[in-house]
Amino acid sequence: MSEPLVVMKDVNKHYGDLHVLKDINLEIGKGEVVILIGPSGSGKSTLCRTINRLETFEAGSITIDGKELPQEGKALADLRADVGMVFQSFNLFAHKTILENVTLGPIKVRKTPKAQAEKRAMELLERVGVAHQAAKYPAQLSGGQQQRVAIARSLAMDPKVMLFDEPTSALDPEMINEVLDVMVTLAKEGMTMVVVTHEMGFARKAAQRVVFLADGQIVEQATPEEFFTNPKSDRAKDFLGKILTH
């Protein structure tokens, strides 16, 4: 096993009385692709979002590449630049063109010269197949195209790890694959990824590990093959029974 890039130690979080994350211990190696799966409300999004501190947590620690997550301010912003995040609802900047969406981070955060940032952005847009849309605004693109732009926007920062929170659940069925294909390629190229998804095909093709979460706890971890064909815990069996009947 490669040395861990993300290490979560005894992470606990509450929303008021609700204990959403219970003693989460999770290590993610360099180049590893980990799927987070579990029932609705089990805390998948929350776990994902604590990794770049979009959510705070009360106890425990999270380190990325050996560095503890800073509390706030410039240090936190710097660390977030190294952690890409792709959201269910794309969240492209509506007032900026596709190209500007991708160059904003490199120019403002990495201080890359504009021409160089644009050249790189065009390469990335090419790679995710939306280069010909570079001058348009997000609202003019389909959901699948917007999500691929969002991936390019993250990649432009050269992140050490990328978080995906249900990247395909807001998409029409015919657009899901165009996004998953991009993600499979990324995985093959060695990107470290944490992916919240119920797409089993993707999990089997791209992931090394499935982490099953229920009620804020990690209940079971296994390879995709093993988890989907031979789950150990009753919670996982029950859950898989429900999603497989659809």
């Binding site: 912003a77 977030r80 890409g84 900047f93 509506a94 007032h95 955060v109």
Partner: peptide, 29 residues
Amino acid sequence: PAGQAEAARSIGLTFSQSLSQVLLPQAFR
């Protein structure tokens, strides 16, 4: 949309950069 503010933060923009680059230009409208 709050998601755009989160996206701005997650690419590493500071609070003032998120404000000036993403939130205020759209807020003005």
